[in-house]
């Protein structure tokens, strides 16, 4: 798993690539927290489309990103294509609190 971020105006895009399971989750959470507290953004996008694999560990990663963003007054959206990753996040009901794009 690797994390890269891009800034476009006031929007921060955090892109995850590789595989996200239990082994990678703690590192992912800490890097995402760093990215989100690294400046002043109004919006952030957590881009999961580059992940070739994700399991239920991704639920906590997205939830923690959401809470960190909320505390920093950043509006967070999650970018994910149809498939297993989206079904996992929907099963946990995350679409009720976070915008999926």
């Amino acid at each position: 798993m690797k994390i890269k971020s891009e800034i476009r105006g006031s929007i921060l895009k955090i892109c995850l690539t590789g595989e996200l399971g239990h082994h990678e989750a703690i590192e992912a959470i800490s890097q995402i927290k760093d990215e989100l507290s690294d400046g002043k953004y109004l919006q952030a996008v957590l881009d999961l489309t580059g992940l070739s694999f994700m399991d239920s560990s991704g639920i906590a990663v997205v939830m923690k990103a959401y809470k960190t963003a909320q505390n920093a007054d950043i509006k967070l959206a999650v970018k994910v294509e149809n498939g297993h990753k989206k079904r996992i996040l929907l099963a946990a009901g995350l679409n009720k609190i976070i915008d999926f794009i």
Partner: peptide, 22 residues
């Protein structure tokens, strides 16, 4: 049951639910 976990805050209690539906 969905959301049942004895784990810490990194766990969401969705593992069995996902195994069942996948």
């Amino acid at each position: 049951e969905p959301m049942f976990t004895t784990g810490d805050s990194d766990r969401s209690g969705m593992g069995f639910t996902i195994m069942e539906s996948f």
